[in-house]
């Protein structure tokens, strides 16, 4: 694992991608820092960071796009997969290298609150926690990007799809506000999600009985609940899907100074799920 980690990290800085990412993030944050903290005298660095969030949406796909797609295209994955190293370690090695690249600018960010403090009042606790959560959010985005990169041979497709998904996640709140809130639409939404899940199960297992049973039982349960207590379905969709607005955990800290521990757990679970899915995606390709 260490060998892969070292090689990856080195290659990020040899191929300039890592440098470009860090420079990009530093320049943007620097501009916001100048504008908000130094020029306007606002004492919270966390607010500056929330402006830099948009850089992640472009920057993270940039560093994750090549992680697996390039290996696959150049067939160098043959070296990794025939070496006496387990696949999980290969994926972890690569993921940790990406995380390290994301960590570097975040470590540098730790200086900024001190600069503010040297000029007057600073809210160090909030600022440092926001930097940590900002870093974790980057790690979640990186896990998603790495997963998408493992699905394709083309770096361009990996970049575009990761960028698209991160952008949708960024705009998620706005999209959710367009969803209807009535109980009936909640039911319809649940049924649609259920059908998609059943279809996916059918595709994966090829077992029509199992998928059909899940669909029918789920639909029946949903409809009965709706008849008994329709109020449960009110705002269900936006509540359910609202969990996916990952950046909210971070913006809560930056705008309201509220730290949501469950949100941090959510981040860690997202990372675990996508790293696991990456391993599975590569395994699947070996078998098909």
């Amino acid at each position: 694992m260490l060998a892969i980690y070292k090689r990856e990290l080195k290659s990020y800085f040899q191929s300039m991608v890592g440098c470009v990412f860090i420079a990009f993030l530093m320049v943007f944050t620097g501009i916001y820092f100048m504008a908000y903290n130094l020029m306007s005298g606002y004492p919270c660095f966390s607010y500056t960071l929330s402006g830099s969030l948009i850089v992640f949406i472009v920057g993270i796909p940039l560093i994750t796009m090549r992680s697996f797609s390039e290996e696959r295209k150049n067939k160098t994955d043959q070296l990794l997969l025939t070496a006496p190293v387990s696949l999980g370690k290969v994926v972890m090695g690569k993921y940790l290298a990406i995380v390290t690249v994301i960590a570097i600018p975040n470590v540098i960010f730790c200086i900024y609150p001190l600069i503010i403090k040297s000029q007057g009042t600073a809210y160090l606790m909030v600022d440092y926690i926001s930097i940590l959560v900002f870093f974790l959010l980057g790690c979640v985005y990186a896990a998603i990007g790495m997963f998408l990169s493992s699905l394709t041979e083309s770096q361009i497709i990996a970049f575009i799809s990761t960028f698209g998904i991160l952008l949708v996640l960024y705009l998620w709140d706005g999209i959710l506000s367009m969803l209807p809130s009535s109980a009936l639409s909640g039911l319809v939404g649940v049924l649609i999600i259920l059908s998609v899940a059943a279809f996916y199960i059918w595709q994966m297992t090829g077992n029509a009985v199992l998928a059909g049973a899940i669909e029918i039982i789920g639909a029946a349960a949903g409809i009965i609940t709706y008849i008994v207590r329709s109020s449960l379905f009110e705002n269900l969709l936006s509540n359910l899907l609202g969990r996916l607005a990952l950046a909210n955990v971070f913006t809560d800290i930056t705008s309201n100074s509220i730290v949501d521990i469950t949100g941090i757990v959510l981040y860690l679970s997202f990372i675990a799920v996508f790293v696991f899915l990456t391993v599975q995606a590569i395994q699947k390709r070996r078998w098909s």
Binding site: R7, N74, Q78, L79, T82, A83
Partner: peptide
């Protein structure tokens, strides 16, 4: 895999090393 050394059809080389 410890007992095997493998040269695939296309040598798995990292061009930037």
């Amino acid at each position: 895999k410890k007992h095997i050394g493998y040269l695939p059809e296309l040598p798995p080389l990292y061009m930037d090393m």
